[in-house]
Design a protein around this nucleic acid. Structure first.
Lengths: 232, 232
DNA sequence: TAGATTGTTAATCGATTAACAATC
DNA sequence: TAGATTGTTAATCGATTAACAATC
């Protein structure tokens, strides 16, 4: 039995979002949800919701919808949230410290157990009870703790080196905030936060909205709008 | 002529990445690139690269590849990078200040022209020459400046209110770092950075890698590996 | 039971890949 | 010119939507 691995790529991409919405529902005490309502939130069709869940053997009740908690558990399990992940932060600058302070990671089972930096002014300080250590302390720390994920929040120019180090010390998950990309060995998982790409997408959307508006105006909606407002 | 709007959805999603790679090539002085090389970097087929560019009327030379700079210009134009975007940051906590310090935004034409916060301890301080102002100063500021994008880096609980404000003051672009989603009017563009979703994706990948490894071991690769290493 | 909503198959749609003629 | 790579159409593949029987 080769593990299931049946869930399609497109579905996997949606799972974190499902999980978030289900967790929101759970939090406010809603215990049942219909594919149509979940679909509305996710901005997809109810059909797609059912198709998605169908892939991992539905957890729904015909005529009744889905129980929020078991569904959430199931998705969590697929996402690997069943067992907690231990993280360290490489780079204790503003971004690194901001992430260390982020309350919602721990809630999802992502626990920060260490912070590291090159800057001697930062070493020895604490963030949320976690002491910032020298990068030199990293090998020993990695050997002594089960570190699942290294968060890379160092400046661009140091990112590659930082990544090489954490890989060398046997850490298999990298969450990269530096705007560089690097090749990693086949057994290492990496996820990039590309802020400038996100910003470019926003710029595109903004441009589209403006063009849509400009076209409307051209087509005389301006006049109609004046009319609607009682102008003439 | 209704504006072109021919570029497919899937292609648009790739444009920021193309732009980033092209800009990297440009920076190191490479002026020509082949679809096969660009494809390798993007992890897509050369066919897809050509198909993508075909959609906005190719800028390539048969037998020669693509000129980096004109191609970059063209994609930049589609993304709305041709004219600079002015941004303000709502929330001058660690994250807000980290973003204000980020050097690469300005390079792409995203300029931070103001920062706002509720916290009286922060008001009056400066980040990179930008003074942190009271939220009360926002309406006047928005009226007096052409603000394209508001970056929301306030805590979750204040995010909705912040968004409502910037929308009320006529800002049409929102870059949201708070882990809440909100409905916005039809003429407002919004882009979310969902850190915990990204983290869940990483968790999924990590789990997959581990499973793949475990399967290999089960299938006896362990033994083979020992053999390769000269063990017996 | 009757009503409702899921489970599941089939149909449609869009995106990716393949192929090759056009042309630099 | 010959060689190479794009432009562009056609074929394939995967993802989404529609539809309805199954069943709670």
């Amino acid at each position: 039995m080769k593990g299931e691995k049946k869930v399609s790529n497109a579905t996997v991409k949606r799972l974190p979002k499902y999980y978030r919405y289900l967790s929101d529902l759970h939090q406010v005490g809603i215990s049942r949800v219909l594919s149509i309502d979940l679909g509305r939130q996710m901005e997809i069709t109810p059909s797609q919701v059912r198709q998605d869940f169908f892939q991992f053997g539905c957890v729904g009740l015909q005529g009744y919808g889905y129980e929020v908690e078991p569904l959430m558990q199931e998705i969590g399990k697929i996402l690997g949230l069943a067992q907690p992940n231990q993280m360290i932060i490489i780079g204790a600058g503003k971004l690194g410290r901001a992430l260390a302070n982020h309350p919602s990671f721990e809630k999802r089972g992502f626990k920060i157990i260490g912070m590291f930096d090159l800057n001697p002014h930062l070493i020895g300080k604490s963030v949320r009870g976690i002491e910032i250590q020298s990068m030199d302390a990293l090998p020993e720390f990695a050997a002594g703790h089960a570190v699942d994920i290294a968060v890379i929040t160092v400046p661009r120019m140091h990112a590659r080196e930082a990544a090489e180090k954490v890989i060398r010390y046997g850490i298999k998950g990298i969450w990269n905030f530096a705007s560089v990309e690097f090749e990693v060995p086949d057994d290492v998982a990496i996820e990039h936060i590309h802020l400038s790409e996100s910003l470019m997408s926003l710029s595109y959307k903004l441009k589209e909205k403006r063009q849509a508006l400009a076209e409307k105006l051209e087509e005389g909606y301006c006049w109609t709008y004046g009319l609607e407002c009682g102008l003439r």
